[in-house]
Nucleic acid binder design. Structure first.
Lengths: 220, 220
DNA sequence: TTGATAAATGTAAAAATTACACTTAAAAAA
DNA sequence: TTTTTTAAGTGTAATTTTTACATTTATCAA
């Protein structure tokens, strides 16, 4: 039986959640939109295969990459029997290797306007979005999508995009800062307002430390 | 590459969460404890393969069975390259086919006293328990483990077992009944007290209906 | 100096959660 | 028949969390 991995690569840009899609170059379904994937090598961990695909496309290593699930319907690929292990990745859209992406014929698509995808890839995207929405609520995965330094309004608009609903700026700021896992910097981002907005960093060490003592990250 | 499914079958009995384990009869690691599994047939959906294994062992169909994940380290099985799709099932421990289970050399083990398991099966159990703990908090999966009719104290002790901490009976009852997804019956269970405890049923239809209107099941 | 604009801030009301102790129903024993 | 035993069942007040909501402020550009 053939075993493949498929990667769902998400980014956040222009206040929109986006996914990297590919014009398919191999048969069947040449020219159709799809996710990017690869067969798992016989001597390769499945997780490593996903990491390899991600690195080949974006040039990125050591970024958020998590298993979504196995897609294993007998007839999912009309060519031959092949199961796919889907992985989803959250990357900083500013940091990937544009040249590599271009060379692979990939492009970013807003998750609110996904074209038709081959096989069960549409289902994978739907499932991943559902999972991201659930996980973002209980784990600080949002930070994976922002630059190292970000403002509170940027973080808010990311959550607004993920949850697909508006949040109150006072309540949001109060809540997110109350966790004590953001470091306020002495710098401002002056690109979106005259007044400028203070930049913050995610304090991963503090978060891990708090998690171990039963702390519960939750943004409603 | 070989593709297998492994089933983690959980039940609740004697106020303990239990898992069904097997004495391995095939090489390698004959005689060691393991999960039950099977290779996925070439013309078979992966989900169906898991359902087949579950039915073969317990005689049960249409019970809770969900994908846990893919375990795909290259060296996980010392024999040959084989990835495993792990599935976890929650069953009513009163309803399975004892004769079938016995014939397969299976036995129930409290999750607090799991013997050493072959390969990465110990990791699978650990991951499944973690997932059950998280999911039980946000979805009414606990009912899958109880009889059709159950008492509030039974439900409470199930949650106490899953969360591994005591819950206040007044607050628990108030919370669980406030959802309006339990039907109180005119019957009592007289087995655990002189006074008896009223029996309830889970109202699945009502739950589905509420879920669709943004209702959030959560038990802290 | 003024105007424009997004960032930043506080408080009161409502809702949810927590902590906590006594009464009751029914069977068994006296 | 009465008493004892025991788990089931119940209410309230204090605390915490969540929600709703409007004005001021810092900075750049005109």
């Amino acid at each position: 039986m053939h075993v493949a991995v498929d990667c769902l690569i998400f980014g956040f840009d222009d206040n929109e959640l986006k996914i990297l899609l590919f014009k398919r170059r191999v048969r069947p379904a040449v020219g159709k939109w799809s996710l990017i994937g690869s067969f798992v090598q016989l001597d390769e961990d499945v997780d490593d295969a996903a990491g390899r695909v991600l690195a080949e496309i974006t040039g990125l290593k050591d970024v958020f990459l998590e298993q979504l699930g196995c897609y294993g319907q007998a007839n999912r690929d009309p060519g031959f029997r092949c199961i796919s292990l889907a992985y989803f990745s959250l990357i900083r859209i500013t940091e990937y290797d544009r040249e590599l992406v271009q060379r692979h014929g990939a492009s970013w698509h807003s998750v609110s306007k996904i074209p038709e995808l081959v096989f069960d890839h549409g289902q994978m995207v739907e499932d991943a979005l559902k999972k991201i929405r659930i996980e973002a609520r209980h784990r600080p995965i949002g930070f994976e999508l922002l630059r190292e330094k970000f403002t509170v309004p940027q973080l808010q608009s990311l959550y607004e995009e993920i949850y697909a609903r508006p949040l109150d700026p006072r309540n949001f700021r109060k809540k997110i800062l109350s966790f004590g896992i953001l470091n306020k910097l002495d710098e401002k981002d002056m690109t979106t307002s005259r007044r400028g907005a203070f930049l913050y960093e995610f304090n991963r060490r503090k978060y891990v430390q708090l998690s171990q003592t039963g702390f519960d990250f939750e943004i409603k």
